[in-house]
Amino acid sequence: MAEELNMVQAIAAALDAKLADDARIMILGEDVGVNGGVFRATDGLQKKYGQNRVVDTPLAESGIIGSSVGLALNGFRPVAEIQFLAFMFPGLEQVFAHVARMRSRTRGRFQLPMVIRTPYGAGIRGPELHSESLESLFVHTPGLRVVVPSNPYDAKGMLIAAMELDDPVMFLEPTRLYRAGKRSVPGGLYRVPLDEAEVLHEGDDVSIFAWGAMVPVAERAALALHEERGWTADVVDLRSLMPLDRETILRSVEKTGRAVIVHEAHKTGGLGGEVAALIAEEAIDCLRAPIMRVTGYDVPVPSFAVEDAYLPDEDRVKVGVTEAVTYE
C-alpha cells in the first residue's frame, strides 16, 4: 500500500522493511536507537526490533564503521549511520583501508555486505562541518558503491537494494531533501537499481546532469529556460555515482551535443570532472559546446549565512546552460 512519505520517512520505511525481512540486518550509529536518529531516519525502529538490532553505539565513528566490518565479516548485514558526512572523518581510515578493500584483499573469501548511510550536503543552515559533499572521495576509492537518491521513492528503493547488495554501499542522503516534499512510496519491499541514472525530463538542446539536492535545482533551471528561451533539456539524475551510468550519460549527450554538470561539491577534483572526462573520451564528436560545470566553490563549505551563495542555484545553472546552448 503506497503512502505519501518524505525522504526521511521513506528511508525509515526501507530500514523497517528490511529489518522485518532479514534477521541479519542491523542498524548501528549514534542516537539511532531511543532517539530515532537526529533526523529521525530510524524513528521507532529500536522499539520495534530491540536493542540488539538497532544499536546506540558509543560516540565513535571509526568504531561504528570498524565494528560493522567485523559484523559483516561474520554474517551480519550492518547498516551504519554516520550522523553527518563530515563526522565520518575519523572513520575514513576504516572506509578506505578496509571497507573498500576487504573483498579484494581476501580474494573473495570475505565480502562486506554493509551500508554506510549519512546525511550530506548543505542547505539546512547547519553548524560548521555539517554540510560537506565529499562523494568524490568515495567514488575515487575502488571497492565502494556510491549512490545518492534525490526523492523519497528512490531513497526507499535504493536503500533496500543497497541492503541486499553484497558489496559495501556509501548511501549519501541529501539533507536538504529529507523533508523537501512527499511522494507516493510503495509499501513493503521494492528495489531501484543501483547503477542506473534516471532521465527526468527529455529535451534536445542540452543535457543537465545532477544528483542529490541539485536535482530539483537543475529541474527548475531547465523549466525556466524552457519558458524564457524555448530551450528543452534532458535533465538526468545520475543517482548512482559509482558506477556511473555511462549509457544514459552518453546517449543524452549524443542527442543534445551539450552537457552541463551540476553538483554542490567543490569544483576542483569533483565528480563533475569525471563525468566531463567520460563525455570527452567517448562522445567528443557530438560536442557542440564546452562541457560546463556548475558547482560549489573551492572553499571550505561556509557558515550558513552565506551557504546559499556557495550552493549552485537556479540562476547559476541557467548561466551554465546558456553558455553551453549559445556557444557558437
Binding site: 570498524g66 581510515e93 578496509h98
Partner: peptide
C-alpha cells in the same frame, strides 16, 4: 592473500590498530 575456506583468519593488517575493531565486530556477531 588467499585464506583457506575453513580458517577464520585475516591476512596481516597494515594500518595500525584498525583491525581491533574488526575483532570487536566479529565477536559481536
Amino acid at each position: 592473500f588467499d585464506v583457506p575456506d575453513d580458517l577464520n583468519i585475516l591476512h596481516p593488517c597494515v594500518p595500525i590498530a584498525t583491525h581491533l575493531l574488526h575483532a570487536v565486530g566479529v565477536a559481536w556477531a
